[in-house]
Simulated assay, not measured.
Amino acid sequence: MKNTFFFILLSAILSFAAHASIQIYEFEDLEQEQQFKELSSTLRCPKCQNNTIADSNAELAVDIRQKVYEMTKQGKSKQDIVDYMVARYGNFVTYKPPFTLATAILWLGPIFVVMFGFGFIFVRSRKKQALINEDESWNQAKEARLKALLQQDDDGDKQ
C-alpha cells in the first residue's frame, strides 16, 4: 500500500515537469525567422523588468512573443513591430529608449550627478587647502613669537 502511494505521488510530481512546454515557431523563410529572433532578444518584458521576451516565462512575455510572431508572419517590418509595442507598452519595452522629455532624466541624470560630485570635491579641496595655508601662516607667526620669548628667557637666565 505504501509503495503504491509512493509511486502515485512520484508520478504526480514528475508530471508537473512534463506540463512545461517549449513553443515552436515555424516561418516561411529564414529572413522572418531572423527578424523574430532579433525582436525577441531586443524587446524587454514589461513585467520581468530586465529580461527579454525570449528569456521570460511570464504570461505577458508569452503574449508579446505570440504577437511578434503573428506580425512577423503577416510580413510587418521590424520597425512596425517595435512601433506597435512602444505604442502599447511604452518606451520601456525597448532597451534603448529614445531621447524625449520624459526620458531626459535617464539620459542626463548620471552626467549631472558626476559633474556635481566632481564640483563638490573640487570646492571642498580648495577650502581645505585655504585652511591649511591659513594654519601655516598662523603657525609661522606663532613660532616667531615663541622664539622671541625663548630668547628673552635665555637672556634672563644668564645674568
Rank of each mutant, 00 (worst) to 15 (best):
Q32N: 08
D153A: 15
K76Q: 05
Q140L: 09
T42I: 09
I8D: 12
K142S: 14
K37C: 07
C45N: 08
E70P: 00
V113L: 14
L146G: 00
S125Y: 04
S41Y: 05
Q129F: 10
K37Y: 06
F92N: 14
K128M: 10
Q129R: 14
N3P: 06
I121M: 08
A87F: 13
K37G: 04
F7E: 07
F27M: 08
S15G: 01
Q35W: 02
K128E: 07
S40N: 14
A12S: 11
Y25K: 13
G90S: 01
E134P: 02
Q140S: 04
K73M: 15
L14W: 05
G109F: 02
S41H: 09
N133M: 07
L108T: 01
N3M: 04
C45W: 05
D155N: 11
Q79C: 02
C45Q: 09
L146F: 03
E70H: 04
L30N: 15
F16T: 10
I24N: 02
P98C: 00
L150S: 05
E31Y: 06
I81F: 10
D154F: 06
T52Y: 08
D63R: 15
D83H: 07
P46D: 01
V114Y: 01
A17T: 14
F27T: 11
K67G: 04
V113H: 05
N133D: 14
N50S: 15
K47D: 04
Q66E: 06
G117D: 01
D29S: 03
N3A: 06
K2L: 14
A54D: 13
K96C: 00
S137Q: 13
C45Y: 05
S77L: 01
H19P: 01
E26G: 14
F16A: 04
D63P: 07
F112C: 02
A104Y: 04
E31A: 14
A54M: 11
Q152E: 09
S125M: 08
N57T: 03
K78N: 07
Q140W: 04
S125C: 02
E28V: 13
K142N: 12
F99W: 09
I22M: 08
M1W: 10
F99L: 12
L131Y: 05
D63Q: 14
D83N: 13
V68Q: 06
Y84D: 12
I111F: 10
E38R: 07
R88E: 02
Y84F: 14
K127E: 00
D63I: 15
Q79P: 00
F116D: 06
L10N: 06
L14R: 02
K78F: 05
G117R: 02
R145F: 07
L131K: 11
I121S: 03
D83T: 11
K147R: 15
D29P: 04
